[in-house]
């Protein structure tokens, strides 16, 4: 196996950025020439031509770079995880083109989740949360599937501002990369490839005149990758370096704090109003920031910085104050952020 070095990490990052950048441009042109445009509705924040080709471009970029890394640097990803993620990407493509109904999409997500479970990584332990450690296999698989649905849909739901989903994904990949690479180098190159693909997409996502969105392809594809690595971290058979720094479940929540809290808040508010939790509206926290006058990039960057600060604060504090007080600290910071920036 080729060892992960700074040089090959940087090379694959660069390769991925370039591939993604040009693929995004090319596929945008193909979509706009064929009038496959994102419809402008009353909820849309864009009024110019925009396509939902970002997800497809990111997907293809990752596939191309993965193929190169597989043949040159022996990058290995579990075949079931690969299959499940591919299935999610295809579901996303179908959704972007033909608008798959929510119930059908939900069923397909469950199916993809079951495939990814075959990779052997499950949330088989609560790692001491509520004093619970190992849980029975059946329960572990059910919880894993539930978490898969939550993560995939949460990422889908926060994909409402330019750069927001991309920045959250970059943060996730960067923090998780260190943990996975230190444990097993065989999946190591996947991270620079993913970060590069998202960076290449971000340049087009922030473009005002030729805007590209992730679409369902991107959020489902990248969401399922995020879910897979979450299971990898939470699977108790992996001895991970993160155990010396912070509780694994707390880390996983913190690295995805914005999608999870926003989704929970939105579902609670909609349920309180006796609406379907899946109805589309503008009550997300990021919409609040935009309504307060922040531009998209400002709102995205603010959410990215604030959520990263919570994670870093917990990484520093956990050794000194333990799990309970870290949860208290996180709740406190969330309330503080809400009153300072979102209210």
């Amino acid at each position: 196996m080729v060892e992960i070095t700074f040089i090959n990490t940087a090379l694959f990052l660069l390769l991925s950025v370039v591939t993604s950048f040009f693929l995004n441009r090319y596929i945008y042109n193909v979509f706009s020439n064929n009038k496959i445009l994102d419809p402008i509705t009353s909820r849309s924040s864009h009024k110019s031509v925009a396509t939902r080709s970002g997800g497809l471009s990111v997907f293809l970029s990752i596939c191309i770079c993965y193929a190169i890394a597989y043949s040159t640097a022996n990058l290995v990803v579990d075949p079931y995880a690969f299959l499940g993620v591919m299935f999610m990407a295809i579901t996303g493509i179908a959704d972007d083109f033909f608008n798959v109904r929510y119930r059908e999409k939900f069923f397909l997500q469950i199916f993809a989740g079951i495939i990814i479970l075959q990779a052997g990584y499950t949330i088989d332990s609560f790692h001491g949360i509520f004093g619970i450690y190992e849980i029975p296999s059946g329960l572990a698989k059910t919880i894993t599937l539930f978490v898969f649905l939550v993560i995939v849909n949460a990422l889908n739901l926060i994909d409402g501002l330019d750069g927001l989903a991309a920045l959250i994904l970059i943060k996730f990949f960067l923090f998780v990369a260190g943990i996975v690479i230190i444990n097993s180098q065989e999946m190591g190159l996947f991270f620079p490839i993913s970060v590069g693909a998202v960076l290449g997409f971000m340049a087009h996502n922030f473009n005002s005149s030729k805007k590209v969105f992730l679409g369902d392809t991107g959020s489902l594809f990248l969401g399922s990758i995020v879910a897979f690595f979450t299971f990898y971290i939470l699977d108790s058979s992996n001895d991970l370096v993160i155990d010396s720094f912070i509780s694994r479940p707390l880390f996983c929540i913190l690295v995805l704090i914005y999608p999870l809290t926003d989704t929970l808040r939105v579902i609670l508010l909609r349920s309180f109003k006796r609406q379907s939790p899946f109805v589309a509206d503008r009550i997300h926290l990021h919409h609040r920031l935009v309504d307060k006058g922040y531009r998209h990039w400002e709102a995205s960057l603010m959410i990215f910085i604030l959520s990263t600060l919570i994670l870093i604060a917990n990484l520093f504090a956990f050794q000194f104050i333990g799990l309970f007080f870290c949860v208290v600290l996180t709740m406190g910071l969330l309330v503080l952020y809400y009153y300072l920036f979102f209210k």
Binding site: G163, L174, G178, I179, I182, S244, L301, I305
Partner: peptide, 27 residues
């Protein structure tokens, strides 16, 4: 591994700061 992960976190921190500053400057 602990030392390695600490060094990696410093790298991530620098990367994120650079990303933030780049975006800020760009916009």
């Amino acid at each position: 591994q602990n030392q390695m992960f600490k060094r990696y976190l410093v790298f991530v921190f620098i990367f994120l700061v650079l990303l933030t500053v780049s975006l800020f400057t760009y916009f």
